[in-house]
Structures are given as C-alpha cells and as structure tokens.
Design a protein around this nucleic acid. Structure first.
Length: 424
RNA sequence: GGAGAGAUGCCAGAGUGGUUGAAUGGGACGGUCUCGAAAACCGUUUACCGACUUGUCGGUACCAGGGUUCGAAUCCCUGUCUCUCCGCCA
C-alpha cells in the first residue's frame, strides 16, 4: 500500500510511474485519494478541537463535584452532552472517510521504479542477460512428462488418486533429486549469509493482509474454513510477516532469511495445454530468500540477490535468461522485478524459475515494518524477496536437458547430495 | 474436547471510576565522578493522527470491537489470543 503522504508530496511522479503499468483512470484514482485525504484531515481537526473542549469540561466537572458545587457542574454537563452528540456524528463521518480512503489505497499497485520499462504484458519485458548454451538433444528426446513415466520417478496418477490433479507423487530417485535440490539451495544460501527459517505453512488472515495476498487474491490460496487459516502460496508470506508490527534497531539490519516450504496454489481456471507436467502445480516446493533493508541500499540488494540466483543456475549448468519485467507484467506489490527463466530443451520453452522483487516500502507500510534511523526517527524499511529456487521447473529442465540414451545425467554439483550420477 | 486464570510501556510488574502516558524495578541512551572502567548519583527514553511559526500544541491508544458515565486501564457485553490443570496425541 502506498502512503498517502507520498501521494500528496509526489503526485506527478506517482501518476507517471503508474502509467507504465498501463492502468486505466490513474489520474482519477489519485485525485479521489487526495480528496478523501483532505476530507479526512479536516474532519479530524474539527473532532480534535471539540474533544479537547470536552476533556477540559470533564476535568472541571470532576473538581466542582469534589468541592460540592453541584449546580455549576450541572451547567457544564449540559454543554458536554451537546459536544458528545456532535463528536459522535463527526466520528461516524470520519470512520466512513477513513474506510473509503483505505479501500482506494488498497486498489493502487506499487509505483514502478524509473528503470522499469512501460508495457502491457510479457512481450514488453526486457531480456537483460542470457547465459549458457541451449543443448541439442538426440532424436528420441522426450518432454519431462514422458521421462518421469519412463524412469518411474514422478507419478501424477497416484497424486490424482490420493489428492487430485496437480499434486504429484515423487518416487525413488525423483524424491531424492527433489530433496537434493532443497538441501543444495539451503546450503548455498547459508554460505551467502542467509539464516535458515522453517516457518508454519498455514497463516492467519493478518499475515495475508501483511504481504498483500489479501484482500484481493484470496482465490489463489487454499483456505481452511474451520480455523480461518490460509495455506501459504509462498514462504514469502510467513517469513516476511515475522516482521509485521516490528520496529528494528540499526544493529539488527540487514535481515537476510532463507526458507524452504511447500507452496500451495489453487490457480483456479488456469489449466490448459501449456501447463502439462511439472509446469504448473497446486503443490510444489520452493526455497525463498527474503531480505529487509534500509531504503538507500535496497536496489544494490536486488542486484546482489539476482546475482546469487544466477549463480545457482550456473552451478546447475542450466541455460537461462534474465528479464526485467515491464510495468504491466509486474506483480501488484512490486516496484521492480527480475524474472529468471531456464530453457527446457524438449519443450523448447523458457520456464520461469525465479522472480526477484524489490517492494520498497509497499509491503512495509502494510506490515508496519520500520526501523529507527540514526536521527532516532522511525522510518519504513524496504522488503525484497526472490525464489532461490522453485523446484518443479528446475526438475523439468534438468530432466529434459540432461537426458541421454543411457539415462538422465545428474548435474555434477548435485551428485554429493543425490549420491547417484544417473537416473536410468 | 473439559475446567480455571489472564492480556498494561523495550522487559518484569503495580494500578478497581477523576491532572495515570500510566507507580516501582530492570534494560537502553546521555551526563557527573574516573587515567579509563565498574559502582554510585542525576537526567532522558512509546507509537499513530492532526495543526501550524518544525518545535511546540491538540487528539487517540493499557488485546480487539461495542456499551455505561460529565469522565474508563479501572464497570458491563461480545470476540480473539495466551497460560495452567485434565483428556487426546506425532
């Protein structure tokens, strides 16, 4: 959520920035917010003044009662009754205005950073880097959804039997490969100075609001009615919410956390031909990195996080490209996002395996995540996160790219983790 | 699931209707003392909203939401959460 004060002070910059998302009626929305804000402040001022008067009267009445001047007291009571009524009316108005303002603010996405290109969708994203060579496969090469059957390592039918579509069962070397990747990612993150966190994978409503999944995207999450809990779509939610309503001190910064969790996504209505196999699932594993930074250093951190994610892909010997997302393709909360995509050779497609974002103060404002700066002033922090990495598509790419007539070659770096070199 | 207790500042913990933003202790910060430190002593130390002369003033907040009252941390109602005991249990 944007801060009203920022909208007030930097109206033009915000409007120009939001235009890069190709949204409609930006000017009107911002104007509406400013008007509501104006109205709110006026009402508040009026109410405060009356309340101050009532507070003085209440004290006087108390003193008069003590000294037995009942009549004087009664006179003042009459005035207080009037005030009380006026204040009640004003306060009802004020709450209404505040509510409207809040709603209007919730509807505005984050402002893209200056370097973010304008655009409406994936076609306008910028490829800023590409690495690795695209493998040429042998004639009988198969897509991963065939390979997993051939080697009996991931089973969709069993998943359907016990849960439903999009809940695969990993078996034998498939399960070991998965576990190897998780351990590899966590170990690498630790070497980079991240602290490992094992959070709950269900969260309450307040956490959903904190990171912005609620109120708009409740359809994306599995919801446990009986206990009013949501199953997390990403570890970002619990790990970032650890810092909800927190004022950090200078010495506690920066925060660098990493966590492995399963992730759950309902993805209602998004099933089709291009989401076969591991490309899109209801449950999948992901290792997520989360950082909390001072505003002045957050973009340097974004670069550092990207470099780290890229290093993982290079160690896994996967060809990838790095995209700077355009305004229209970025998530609601993000100010700047880089996507990493690996090339999946049998599908001949780029698959998104990581999304690294700087949210600036957008999440922190909702979370009330602040720190005391050197001047002793409390100030909103910047939050950042990135997948490092999402497992299923990495698995898909490894299976497809590394297939040989003899079997699937495990990337060298993973062999100490899998303790086998080939899936055959 | 059953029974009981509770929720106050950075922490511990007082406070059962009137200058209580909140005693007391601890912590943190600043100062005095000291070559330096410890100890001792003195002082400071919540957040949010609003107004303007940007430092001051006003308002709000003692789990949340309602209510009683001229006045609520204090009384009443509802909800949430925590703890203890019992039950169940990886």
């Amino acid at each position: 959520m944007l801060q009203v004060a920022t909208i007030r002070d930097e109206k033009e910059r915000i409007i120009q920035g939001l235009k890069k998302r190709r949204l409609k009626n930006i000017e009107e929305s911002i104007e509406n917010i400013l008007q509501l804000d104006q109205k709110r402040r006026q009402a508040q001022k009026q109410q405060d003044e009356l309340q101050a008067e009532a507070n003085v009267l209440a004290k006087e009445i108390g003193n008069l009662m003590k000294s037995g001047q009942r009549e004087e007291a009664e006179q003042r009571k009459a005035r207080t009754a009037e005030l009380k009524k006026t204040i009640a009316d004003l306060s009802a108005d004020l709450s209404k205005t505040e509510e409207n303002l809040q709603k209007a603010l919730y509807a505005i996405p984050n402002v893209p950073e200056t370097r973010v290109p304008e655009g409406g969708g994936a076609d306008d994203n910028l490829t800023v880097h590409q690495h690795g060579t695209i493998p040429t496969l042998h004639a009988e090469a198969l897509p991963h959804w065939e390979l997993i059957k051939k080697y009996d390592i991931i089973d969709f039918d069993l998943g359907i039997k016990i849960s439903g579509a999009g809940f695969p069962v990993y078996k034998g070397k498939g399960a070991k490969l998965q576990r190897a990747l998780i351990n590899f990612f966590l170990d690498e993150a630790e070497k980079q100075g991240y602290r490992e966190i094992q959070p709950p994978i269900v969260v309450n409503e307040a956490s959903g609001y904190g990171t912005g999944q609620l109120p708009d995207k409740e359809g994306q999450m599995y919801y446990i009615t009986e206990d009013n809990l949501y199953m997390i779509p990403t570890a970002e939610v619990p790990i970032t919410n650890l810092y909800r309503d927190v004022i950090l001190s200078d010495e506690e910064l920066p925060i660098r956390n990493v966590g492995y969790t399963p992730c759950f996504r309902r993805e209602a209505g998004s099933w089709g031909a291009h989401v076969r196999g591991l490309n899109r699932l209801h449950q999948f594993d992901k290792v997520e990195i989360v950082q909390i930074r001072k505003p002045e250093e957050s973009y340097q951190t974004l670069d550092e996080m990207c470099a780290y994610v890229q290093s993982l892909l290079e160690k896994l010997e996967l060809p990838y490209r790095k995209l700077l997302l355009c305004g229209g393709d970025m998530g609601f909360n993000s100010a700047m996002t880089y996507d990493m995509e690996v090339f999946s050779a049998a599908q001949q497609r780029w698959l998104e395996v990581s999304s690294v974002s700087n949210f600036e103060t957008f999440q922190a404002n909702r979370l009330k995540l602040r720190y005391k700066n050197k001047e002793g002033k409390t100030q909103l922090l910047h939050t950042l996160n990135g997948s490092a990495l999402a497992l299923p598509r990495i698995v898909a790419a490894i299976l497809e790219n590394n297939q040989t007539p003899e079997g699937i070659r495990v990337p060298q770096i993973l062999v100490p983790y899998t303790r086998f070199e080939i899936i055959s």
